[in-house]
Amino acid sequence: MNEQRRQRRPGRARTGQRRRHLQLLARPWVLPVMALTVVIVSGAIGYRITEGWDWGDCLWMVLITISTIGYGEVEPLSQAGRLVTVLIIAGGLLVVQLTIQRVLGLSQSGYFRQLRELRFRRMLRRMHDHVILCGYGRIGKEIGEQLLLENVQVLVVELDPKRHKAAQERGLQVLQADATLDETLLEAGLDRCRSLVAALPSNAANLYVILSARGLRKNCRLIARADSDEAASKLELAGASVVVSPYVAGGRVMAATALRPIAVDFMDLLAGTACEIEEFRLSQDPLLISHLSHRSLEELALDRRSGAMLLAIRDNSTLTANPSGDMTLAPGQMLVVMGSQDQLTAFKMLLGDALDTVETMGGSSPWTESTWR
């Protein structure tokens, strides 16, 4: 019960904060709207008393008078009716002047900037299955470019104004806030995102982000940047799903390009096609994979029935590439499969309840789905 109350408090706090923001945004317009309402109602009552018109004609006369359209009088006015018209014109001018002064004052006070921020936060609340990119430095910029190429929805969290502006100019959605704060991650939609990437320039800042994100959402996929082995080990202890060192990764790519250029070119070509490589993790529950276990791959015929290609099977630390037909499936194994989105969907349907999680490794339109049991 206490845990449920703690989970509800942030939501209630955010709801109360949004309500206060709406009240602050509506407050400057209360006086002009009330003044305009008083002029319209008073003018209609004046015409009703002096001319005896019905309420429709009274309101119509007030509107065409106060808007200076001047279509003409509904009926010839008496002296008292003309006096009402003069008062309506004077009241309308006062209201217009009051409104203009209020708009100029709001523009100088940053009201319209707050309005844009409120609209942006409404957009944030509608985002889901997106990638949260913390930091838009050199590494973050390259990550953002790759995600844009993959048509993945990205939200950049960046505190530096210059980097914030650079990300906006690139067409990315940017939240200007401190990514190490819990409230920032919650506002960025951590509970609805597909993954979070901590690419801040400081190892300590990335560690704070990973600690906060893991504490807020236990099953979120967290990728972190590290500049040293010591930082990488600490990030793993903090809960990072994957830790990447730009220097180590760059060195490996360069070495692979020197030794196996065809393989590297193949992965580059794969990223520009509709073909994807996905990892299907099987459930640890033997009951859920009972329809797959004790049957060979040849009997299951997953490749033939789905059209996808089973590239490898990872069992703990052992990776079996190009598995033979007599190999059987077991709980907790990771199946590395390549194919189009339709073929991978068919493969997933064949696995059924045995499927635990799905992770996209490459392709033009990743569709990562995670089912946590």
Results as ranks from 00 to 15, higher is better:
R9K: 09
G16H: 03
R18V: 00
R18N: 03
R19S: 07
P28N: 05
W29S: 05
L31A: 10
L36T: 10
T37F: 03
T37R: 01
I40H: 01
A44T: 12
G52V: 04
W53A: 11
C58H: 04
L59T: 14
V62C: 14
L63F: 11
I64R: 06
E75V: 13
Q79R: 11
A80P: 02
V86D: 13
L87K: 04
V95P: 14
V96T: 06
L98M: 10
Y111S: 08
R113A: 15
Q114R: 15
R126N: 12
D129L: 10
D129W: 05
I132W: 05
I139Y: 03
G140A: 07
K141Q: 15
Q146T: 14
L148T: 15
N151Y: 04
N151Q: 12
Q153E: 05
E158S: 06
R163Y: 02
H164V: 10
G171R: 10
A177K: 06
A179P: 06
E183T: 14
E183Y: 04
L185I: 08
E187R: 11
E187W: 02
G189L: 00
L196C: 02
A198T: 02
A198N: 05
A199D: 02
S212F: 01
G215R: 11
G215F: 02
R217P: 05
R217M: 06
C220M: 03
R225K: 14
A238D: 02
V244P: 00
I262A: 08
V264M: 12
F266V: 09
L269Q: 13
G272Y: 04
T273P: 00
C275A: 09
I277Q: 12
L282F: 10
D285F: 00
H294K: 11
L300Q: 11
D303E: 15
R305S: 08
G307C: 11
T320P: 09
A321Q: 12
S324F: 10
G325P: 11
M327K: 15
M327C: 15
A330D: 13
Q333G: 13
V337M: 01
M338N: 03
G339L: 09
D342V: 14
Q343A: 07
A346K: 06
D356H: 08
T357P: 03
T357C: 07
T357I: 12
M361Y: 14
E369D: 09
W372H: 13
